[in-house]
């Protein structure tokens, strides 16, 4: 496990280095920042769905809650350090309550997907209806469908006037993604993560082995929501406005599509799926000939039909069948030679 963690750490550092020094040669840091944020959001669902078997249709709810929690806290506090923490805690607490209700109520599969979707739509409807002056938390007016603009964005801890923006903000997001990736790796490679995979494979058996699957699923669901909340806060800082669209149905569906296209059961797959499809969406957004939602839908259909495992698992399979096999053969070869050598005496 330590070897594997070391390998993943080196991989993550190299990936972030490429992202910081090579990717800006082709894509602007501003666009890359949002790709990173969406990647983190996809990773949050990829972890709970791909490794824990929890299909949450409402990951956008935690993303939106994180964004709103940050903005409301930032307006009231006047700086960003504590609001970033609140942005992680609020969705996590909300998810732990929702998760406990669902998992202890023995709700699974399609019921879980429907409930999480309904919760997202309730939040969407509610936030849209908060335009009136009575919807105010401290100094922050919720603003209804217009959302909340003009709030303190990310600053250096302890110095509210030293804003982190532009390229620096891009570097900050890239490093944060690397840290979240490593934390996710650590969780998934620990006993907790391996047990979560066991639960994904066969809940009844894991229960018969003595594991309290309800508690474990609630914890995993909460961790996923905390990561989505962090992504939400980063999004709020990038967009400098939060609107109820964060809770929209299309946002929820998109996260699921990113995971399917990138590949479930991997950590890198959802990140690549989110980055690739979001980039495509931005490029398509510059023309009016084809509706980009149509293209996203078409890509999903093609992937489900042709590459149902997604990009990263398919590449893994190809690697194992080609280069991976050669490496294994190459490693075995010297041993055979030494065996064939006759004894010197």
């Amino acid at each position: 496990m330590i070897d594997s963690l070391w390998r993943d750490s080196v991989g993550a550092v190299l990936g972030i280095a490429l992202l910081i020094w090579v990717a800006p040669l082709f894509i602007s840091p501003y666009t890359l920042t949002i790709l990173i944020i969406y990647g983190m959001l996809a990773l949050s669902l990829g972890m709970i769905w791909g490794f824990g078997g929890i299909l949450c249709f409402g990951q956008a709810a935690f993303f939106g809650l994180g964004a709103y929690a940050y903005v409301i806290a930032a307006i009231n506090i006047g700086e960003s350090t504590l609001p970033m923490l609140i942005a992680v805690l609020v969705p996590a607490i909300f998810a732990s309550l929702l998760g406990a209700m669902m998992f202890y109520g023995r709700l699974n599969d399609v019921y879980l997907a429907v409930i999480t979707l309904v919760v997202t739509l309730i939040l969407f409807k509610f936030m849209n209806s908060t335009a009136g002056p009575e919807y105010i938390i401290g100094k922050a007016r919720l603003g209804g469908f217009n959302g909340i603009p003009g709030f303190p964005t990310l600053n250096m801890p302890g110095n509210p006037n030293a804003y982190i923006w532009g390229d620096t903000y891009f570097y900050f997001c890239a490093v944060t993604l690397g840290v979240v990736f490593l934390i996710t790796t650590l969780i998934l490679q620990s006993s907790f993560g391996r047990i979560a995979v066991g639960i994904r494979e066969n809940e009844t058996r894991m229960s018969l082995l003595g594991y309290d699957i309800r508690a474990r699923k609630t914890v995993l669901f909460t961790i996923g929501a905390a990561i989505a909340g962090l992504a939400g806060a980063l999004f709020a800082n990038w967009a400098e406005i939060v609107t109820p669209n964060l809770f929209s149905l299309s946002q929820s569906a998109e996260i699921i599509i990113w995971c399917i296209v990138g590949g479930l059961g991997t950590r890198l797959g959802p990140i690549l799926g989110a980055a690739g499809l979001s980039l495509l969406k931005f490029l398509l957004g510059q023309q009016t000939l084809i509706d980009n939602l149509l293209i996203t839908g078409l890509i999903l259909v093609l992937f489900v039909l042709i590459l149902p495992k997604g990009i990263v698992p398919t590449l893994n399979d190809l690697w194992s069948l080609t280069i991976g096999q050669r490496i294994i053969r190459h490693r075995r070869r010297p041993r055979r030679r030494t065996r064939r050598k006759p004894p010197r005496d």
Binding site: S191, R194, I195, R200, E201, R205, M206, L208
Partner: peptide, 20 residues
């Protein structure tokens, strides 16, 4: 047979052992 089909024999038994 109520086992974790997607995992190896070792992983299955390890999960059972890890609980205690």
């Amino acid at each position: 047979p109520n086992v974790m089909d997607g995992l190896t024999v070792f992983e299955n038994i390890w999960l059972a052992a890890r609980r205690q």
